[in-house]
Structures are given as structure tokens and as C-alpha cells.
């Protein structure tokens, strides 16, 4: 066999025929367009259908404004809490051996496995008027279900795996050597965390926080069950979208929805940027030793 034919053969062996490539690519592109790009375009085009003026008027509506505020409040409470929990859980799981570790890991995944509606229902059964803790709560004049605390609780439950899962994988990949080095050099636990662990995990942490935030703001099912849909009081952005839509107020509905779509786009952008950074960081920390030319 000459060199030439062997070259052609390897080329044939590693690249699919032209028609297969075109077919597979067009299927992927068509799918993407149909399920992602078209809906996104529709959201914005419907929102701006009657002009920019109507768009901003819809946003200034007191109920819409209340929904935006409630969504922000929920996110401001839930995201830091879950970030804190995520860091603690990831630290424990990636750095220590203990009994029940696998159970803890599966428990962290539980909110992904349970339907959000069920999650909401559990809180109703627990804190609702006829719930387990209902009588005690009403005796002490505390309202959780059909109020902000219920929404926060439901959102926290649904979003708590995001930071933890992200960081567990990240910290396991990085290993504990830098932390051990810091301890041997005389650093206290807190110094190790602040000066070594946190700088090392910051991009992974941010990544988890961004995803957690997107989900916290966009959560529908669990919040819908516990909120009671009280306009101006317990409606978050997704619930407000549904109400407006059911009232055939399409422009207002899509206007509010466009906020979430915009959030999604921003989230994607930041996510992309962070992925780039963490990839670089992992490459650096795991870089095999190069030939020590100057050593």
C-alpha cells in the first residue's frame, strides 16, 4: 500500500459521509430553533407587540411590581442560605470520611428527584392550617403557608442541590493538598478556608450560585402550591405570568415573562464565562509537570 492510499483511507475512516453530516447537523439545528430560539423570540415579540410604552406600563403595574419585589426578596434570602449550605456540605463530603456520607449525598439530590409540586404539598401538610404544626403556628400567630415564609421555604427546598452539587465535584477534582499544605504551615481552620479554600473554589461557587439564583427566581410548581396566589402579596414573577395569561392579558403576561427570559440569557452568559474560567483554573492546578528546562 502506498502512502497516498493509506492517507485517504484514514480520512474515510474518521469522517462520516457528507450526507450524514448534513442530515445530523440540520436535525440538531432544527430542533434547537423549534424548541429554544422560536419560543424566546416569541416571548420578546409578544411583549413588545404594542410598543415600548405599553411594555413599561405593564411593568409599572403595582401587582407586577409586587411580584418582582417578592421574587427578588425570595432570591436574596434563599441564594445566600443555599450557598452557605452548599459550601458546608461540599467541604464535609469532599474532605472527610464519615458514616452516612453516601446517604447525605443522595439526600442532597432529593429535590431533583421529587416533583416540585410534591415538595410544595409537603410544606402545606407540615405548616398549613390543618397541617402537623398548623395549630401551634396559629396559636403563636405565625403564618407560613400562603405567605412569604412559605414561598421562601419552598424555593429553598427546590434550589438547595445547586451549589452543593457543583462544589462537591469541583472540590473533589481539586483535592485537599493545598489545604493540607496550609495546615502544616500553621494555618488555623478558618485561615485555611479564607486564604486557600475559598479562593480556589470561587468560580465553582459562583457557578452554583448563578444556577441556584436562576432556579429560585423561576420556580413555579412548589411556590404555586404554597403561595395561595394572592395578588400583590404572594405572587412571584412566574405566578404573575400565569395569572395574567389566564386573564387573556397577553401583552402584560409576556412582558413579565420577558424578565425571566432576560434573566435566563444573562445567566447563560455568566455561566459561559465562569465555565471558561474554571476550565482554565482546573487545567492549571492539574497541569502535569512540564519539562523543567530551567530547573
Amino acid at each position: 500500500m502506498t502512502n497516498n492510499t493509506s492517507l485517504i483511507q484514514t480520512k474515510d475512516a474518521t469522517i462520516d459521509p457528507l450526507w450524514v453530516r448534513i442530515l445530523l447537523t440540520s436535525i440538531a439545528v432544527a430542533f434547537l430553533a423549534l424548541f429554544l430560539l422560536v419560543p424566546l423570540a416569541i416571548v420578546f415579540s409578544e411583549a413588545f407587540k404594542k410598543g415600548v410604552h405599553v411594555y413599561f406600563a405593564a411593568l409599572k403595574d403595582p401587582d407586577a411590581w409586587a411580584a418582582i419585589r417578592l421574587t427578588l426578596i425570595t432570591a436574596i434570602i434563599v441564594v445566600p442560605l443555599n450557598a452557605l449550605f452548599g459550601v458546608a456540605a461540599a467541604w464535609a463530603i469532599s474532605r472527610f470520611q464519615f458514616r452516612g456520607k453516601t446517604i447525605l449525598v443522595s439526600l442532597i439530590d432529593l429535590p431533583f428527584a421529587v416533583s416540585p409540586v410534591i415538595a410544595g404539598l409537603i410544606f402545606v401538610l407540615l405548616f398549613g392550617a390543618d397541617g402537623l404544626l398548623g395549630p401551634w403556628l396559629s396559636d403563636h400567630n405565625i403564618q407560613i403557608i400562603f405567605a412569604v415564609p412559605g414561598i421562601v421555604l419552598a424555593t429553598a427546598f427546590v434550589t438547595f442541590p445547586f451549589v452543593a452539587r457543583e462544589l462537591i465535584a469541583f472540590m473533589q477534582a481539586q483535592g485537599a493538598q493545598e489545604e493540607e499544605a496550609a495546615v502544616v504551615l500553621g494555618a488555623s481552620g478558618w485561615q485555611v478556608f479564607c486564604r486557600v479554600t475559598l479562593p480556589n473554589i470561587k468560580w465553582g461557587l459562583l457557578y452554583g450560585v448563578i444556577l441556584c439564583n436562576a432556579r429560585a427566581m423561576g420556580e413555579f410548581g412548589a411556590v404555586s402550591v404554597v403561595s395561595g396566589h394572592i395578588r400583590g402579596l404572594t405572587n412571584t414573577i412566574p405566578l404573575q405570568v400565569e395569572i395574567l395569561y389566564n386573564e387573556y392579558n397577553f401583552v402584560a403576561s409576556f412582558t413579565v415573562a420577558s424578565l425571566l427570559a432576560f434573566l435566563a440569557l444573562v445567566t447563560l452568559l455568566i455561566k459561559k464565562f465562569i465555565e471558561h474560567r474554571t476550565h482554565l483554573q482546573l487545567l492549571e492546578s492539574q497541569k502535569p509537570v512540564d519539562l523543567g528546562v530551567n530547573a
Binding site: V183, V184, S188, N200
Partner: peptide, 20 residues
């Protein structure tokens, strides 16, 4: 005593330098 209190110098196989 913990490693922190023993005041030893320890060199790791993969250096474990603080990358940041």
C-alpha cells in the same frame, strides 16, 4: 498535637503550591 502545632516543614509530591 495537630499538624498545625507541630511546626514541621512538609513538601508534597505534587508541590501543593497555592495556585492563586
Amino acid at each position: 498535637l495537630s499538624a498545625k502545632e507541630r511546626n514541621v516543614g512538609f513538601v508534597f509530591q505534587h508541590y501543593a503550591l497555592f495556585s492563586h
